[in-house]
């Protein structure tokens, strides 16, 4: 007789436990969804602000007038030119070394301690604060030369390009099927020719993606340029002299008290954001197309 109320009590306990677990589950999953909305909220807010302020500040004169003195109107032509020159030079310096080092990791040092160490150090370089690289190039180039220069800026950016290209080259070469290497080597082709003419060709889209991602990363880079390329209010194509760049001008103008400088800063910020996002989308598209082609 006493078993019946006992069973009922047990059932009640089980029911309340079940309800508590269900509640906990709903609560946790609800919070997870809220966290995602929280993340997307900032993305939308930041992009919206940049778009709104940037578009209202856009004008054709941005592209042919120089950066103005305080309180006057002008453009960003010299800053655009400086950014393009330094970025291209950085890509030109960083990419070949990066591809070769990535080749070393993927093809010449599999499972060796040297390869593992380099891969480890490269991953740290990839996330290292860029300001540190700026100080490094300052002591390496600017201090001995005695003045800031566009060349020093390009070298700093090249050190940011390098680990990105090393990483993507390493990963893309590892994806190349080993039958391809074996087939080429069995024809008696020397290994360097196999690497350059077979493996690079197969890994090319991936490597291009890596270079594009590196370009996206350096085109918004500000901090390391402050102690290497500095800034220049005038048009300058002299790599031995200080050189303007869009991010540094944006920084200087945004921190100023002048409204006309603020609107130029927003225009620069808008251009950089659009450029970076467009490059990232192109890089993604290349990767996606490659996936489809391989399937």
């Amino acid at each position: 007789m006493s078993a019946v109320p006992n069973a009922a009590a047990k059932a009640a306990v089980a029911e309340s436990l079940y309800r508590r677990r269900r509640l906990m589950n709903h609560l946790a999953l609800g919070l997870a969804s809220a966290a995602t909305l929280f993340g997307l909220f900032w993305l939308v807010w930041i992009l919206w602000t940049t778009l709104l302020n940037g578009i209202s500040a856009l004008a054709p004169s941005l592209f042919y007038e120089m950066t103005p003195p305080p309180g006057e109107t002008g453009g960003l032509a010299n800053a655009f030119f400086g950014s393009i020159v330094m970025s291209l030079l950085a890509i030109a310096m960083g990419t070949p070394i990066g591809i070769l080092a990535g080749t070393f990791l993927a093809e010449y040092s599999r499972r060796s301690w040297l390869g593992e160490t380099i891969r480890f150090i490269n991953d740290i370089l990839l996330s290292a604060p860029s300001i540190v690289l700026g100080l490094f190039v300052y002591t390496l180039l600017v201090k001995p030369m005695g003045h800031f220069s566009g060349f020093a800026g390009a070298v700093t950016l090249a050190f940011i390009v390098l680990p990105v290209v090393v990483r993507t080259t390493d990963e893309m070469l590892k994806l190349v099927p080993s039958q391809m290497r074996e087939a080429a080597l069995s024809l008696g082709i020397p290994q360097w020719k196999v690497t350059v003419q077979v493996l690079y060709r197969s890994a090319l889209p991936g490597i291009v993606t890596g270079v594009l991602l590196a370009l996206a990363r350096i085109s918004g880079e500000t901090a390391p340029l402050l102690f290497t390329a500095l800034n220049n209010q005038f048009w300058s194509h002299d790599l031995a002299a200080p050189m303007a760049s869009v991010p540094v001008v944006v920084f200087q103008y945004a921190m100023s008290p002048y409204d006309s400088w603020h609107s130029l800063a927003w225009a620069g910020a808008f251009m950089v954001t659009v450029f970076v996002l467009a490059i990232s989308l192109i890089a993604r598209a290349i990767v996606a197309r490659r996936k489809v082609a391989n399937d």
Partner: peptide, 21 residues
């Protein structure tokens, strides 16, 4: 992809947005 887009925005944009907005 949208969340990863946040990582691609240059840090100077975060700074300007932070200061002005």
């Amino acid at each position: 992809s949208a969340i990863e887009l946040l990582a691609g925005i240059p840090s100077i944009i975060y700074g300007m947005w932070g200061l002005f907005v």
